[in-house]
Design a protein around this nucleic acid. Structure first.
Lengths: 332, 332
DNA sequence: AAAGGTAGTGCAAACGTTTGATAATGTCCA
DNA sequence: TGGACATTATCAAACGTTTGCACTACCTTT
C-alpha cells in the first residue's frame, strides 16, 4: 500500500456522483436497496474513477477479512506446494487471498506465525502441525482452524487415510517373499509419520515377518540418500518410506552403495509426488494433495455455519490408493 | 478474524493501566517518548491482557501494511517454491507476511490478482510475469514492484543471468562433437525463455553447428516427456531444455522411446532443482532461487528509499554456474 | 382528505489505531 | 516567589468503510 496520491475512495465517488457515501457503499454491498438507476449511475462513476473498495477498511469495520492463512512445515515438499496451489486457486474463485507461511519444521515458528496470522485472517489451514495439542487448542479459541495431516479431537481435521493402502502394500511384499521389512521414518513430531509407522509395523508382524524401524529424518531428499547405509545395515530386503521425497533419496543412496532397486531391495513411498519422476518409478500411495487443499478451504469457509457446536466435529480421511510402479520386486 | 469475544484493544489496556489510549500506543511505537516506568507498567498490563496491536487498524491509519505479495506462474515448480520459501523466511525475520498467488500461467489471472493484492500489501514480487509491459507499468504506478526473471526498463528487476553459463555448455557440447543442437522451449510468454533461447541459438551458430528450436511447452514434466518425439524427429544429438523439470521429463520420454541419456542423446537443464533427483543426474545451471527470493524481499522493502528516482533503476543478474552431472556425453 | 406504507436516501457512529497539538506536571534559576 | 523550560501524558482528528436509524416523498388505502 503506497501513500498513493490518487486512489479513489467512497467519498470521491460520492462527490462525483452527487450522492452520499452510504449510497455508494450500498451500490456495491446491497444494490437491492437502491433504485436500479442510482446503482447504475454510481457504478459508472466508480468505474470511471477506478474505484474499488479498500479491503483493509472493510476488514476493520466488519471484523472479518477476505484472507486465510496456510501454514506448512516445508513448502518445498511437492505435496505441500501442490496443496498450496489447489488451495490458492480455489480461494481465488471465492475472492479470498492466501497467506503462505513455511515453518521450517519448527513448532516455535509455527506458533509465532499463527498468532500473527490470527489477527488478519478469517481462518488458518494448519498442515502437518508440529505444535502440542494444548497450543493448537489455544489457537483454535482465537481463530477458526482446519487441520491437515493431523487429527485433534474437537477440531476439524483432514488427512489422507492410508492404512488400508499400506496394508495392501505390506501384503504384497510379504507375498513376494520379503521376511524383513523396514519403515523409514519421517519427521519425529509428525502425526502422519506415527500413523504410517504403526500401520506398517502392525501388519508386518501380523503377517509373521520381521519389522525394523529406521530412525527419524526430516523427509528431505538428502536424508533419504543418507539413510541408505542404515537400510543396508538393517538387512531389510524391502523398505517402506514415509514419503516419496525420502524414497527417491533412498533409491539414489542405495545406487551409490551399489544396491539396485528393485533387484536388491524394494522401496515404496507415499504421496505420489516425485514418484513418477525418478527412475525406476516408485510404487507409492496417492496423497490427493490437490483434493485435500480444496476441501480444507471449503471447510474453513463453511465452518462458521457449524457454530452451533453440535458436538460433532468433522474428521475426514481422503483415502489413498496404491500406485504400482517399478520399485517393488521379489527379494534377491 | 473472528468476532472474538475478547481480543484486547488499546482501550482495554488503557483502562486497565489507568492511562490514556495514546500512551499505550506510544508504549509500543515510540517508548522513548514516555517515562521508563510508564512504559514498563503499560507493557506489563498489556502482556497480562494478551494484547497485541491490530494490524488491520494500523494498516488503515498508516496507509501501509506489513505484508507483501508474491505472485508466480506455478508454485509447483521447485524453482518457485524454493524462492517462496526463502522469501517467506526472510520476511518473517522482518515481521512481514507473505501473500502467495499462483497464476496458473495466465496473464489475465495475474493482472486480477495483482490488483487485488495492491490494496493490501506494501509491495509485490512478480515472478516470471506473463503480463504485457504496459500492464506492468500501470501496476507499478499503484504499488512498488520487484520483477524476477524478467526485465522491464524503469522497474527493479532481478534474474539469474545464464548467458555465459549457457555458452559454456554449448561450447562443451560442440567440443564433444555435437553438430546439431536443439533448444527445448519453455512457456512462450516467458521472458527468461526468450533470453535462453537466444543465447543458445547465437552460440550454436557461432560455433558452426546447427541450431534447432523445439516448440513452446508449459515447462511441466509431462510436456518434457511428450517432447521426446520431437527431439528424436529433429535429429539433434543434444538438447538444452528451458529448465530442469522439462529436462527430467524429456529424459524419461526418451527412455520410453528406447533412447538413453547420455549415450544416445545429451540433455541439459536449468535451475538446478530436480536435476539431482533423477537418474542420470542432469547437467544444469544453478538458479540460485533462494538467493533471488531473499534479494527480492530486500529490494522491495528498501525501494521507498530510492524514491528520489535517480533515473537509475536496479537491474541485477545473479550469475548461474554450470553444474556437471551425468547427462552429457559425446554423440553416438 | 387524512392516515398508513414503502421505497429510496442521508446522517452519524463505530471499528482500533496513529499522531500533531496541547495541557499538566514538575525543576531550576534568578 | 515567579517565570522559563523540559518532560510526560492527554485530546481529538483522521484513515475508509459499514450499517442502524431517521427522514422525505410518494403511493395506497379508507
Amino acid at each position: 500500500m503506497k501513500k498513493q496520491a490518487g486512489r479513489a475512495t467512497l467519498k470521491d465517488v460520492a462527490e462525483a456522483a452527487g450522492v452520499s457515501i452510504s449510497t455508494v457503499s450500498r451500490a456495491f454491498s446491497s444494490p437491492e436497496r437502491l433504485s436500479p438507476s442510482t446503482v447504475q449511475h454510481v457504478k459508472e462513476v466508480a468505474a470511471r474513477l477506478r474505484f474499488s473498495v479498500n479491503p483493509v477498511a472493510k476488514a476493520l469495520i466488519t471484523g472479518t477479512s477476505m484472507n486465510i492463512g496456510l501454514v506448512v512445515p516445508d513448502i518445498t515438499n511437492p505435496y505441500m506446494s501442490t496443496l498450496l496451489k489447489a488451495a490458492q486457486t480455489h480461494s481465488r474463485g471465492r475472492s479470498i487471498g492466501v497467506f503462505a507461511a513455511d515453518t521450517d519444521d519448527s513448532a516455535r515458528i509455527e506458533r509465532e506465525v499463527c498468532h500473527q496470522l490470527a489477527q488478519q485472517t478469517r481462518g488458518i489451514i494448519l498442515c502437518g502441525s508440529r505444535m502440542s495439542v494444548p497450543h493448537i487448542r489455544e489457537l483454535s479459541e482465537m481463530i477458526p482452524l482446519v487441520l491437515v495431516s493431523r487429527v485433534v479431537e474437537g477440531i476439524p481435521s483432514l488427512y489422507t487415510g492410508s492404512t488400508p493402502a499400506l496394508e495392501e502394500l505390506v501384503d504384497e511384499l510379504v507375498d513376494l517373499g520379503h521376511r524383513r521389512i523396514a519403515y523409514l521414518s519421517g519427521p519425529a513430531q509428525s502425526w502422519a509419520n506415527k500413523q504410517r509407522s504403526r500401520a506398517v509395523s502392525r501388519r508386518v508382524t501380523a503377517r509373521g515377518a520381521e519389522f525394523v524401524k529406521l530412525p527419524p529424518t526430516t523427509a528431505s531428499y538428502g536424508d533419504g540418500r543418507a539413510a541408505a547405509g542404515n537400510v543396508v545395515e538393517s538387512g531389510a530386503t524391502a523398505v517402506m518410506a514415509f514419503d516419496d521425497v525420502l524414497a527417491s533419496g533412498l533409491v539414489e543412496g542405495l545406487r551409490r552403495l551399489g544396491r539396485l532397486v528393485p533387484d536388491d531391495v524394494s522401496v515404496t513411498g507415499h504421496d505420489d509426488v516425485l514418484a513418477e519422476l525418478v527412475y525406476p518409478g516408485i510404487t507409492t500411495i496417492t496423497g490427493q494433495s490437490a483434493r485435500v487443499g480444496q476441501l480444507a478451504v471449503d471447510w474453513l469457509l463453511e465452518e462458521p455455519a457449524a457454530e452451533g457446536d453440535t458436538g460433532t466435529t468433522r474428521t475426514e480421511a481422503v483415502e489413498g490408493r496404491v500406485v504400482r510402479r517399478g520399485s517393488v520386486a521379489a527379494p534377491p
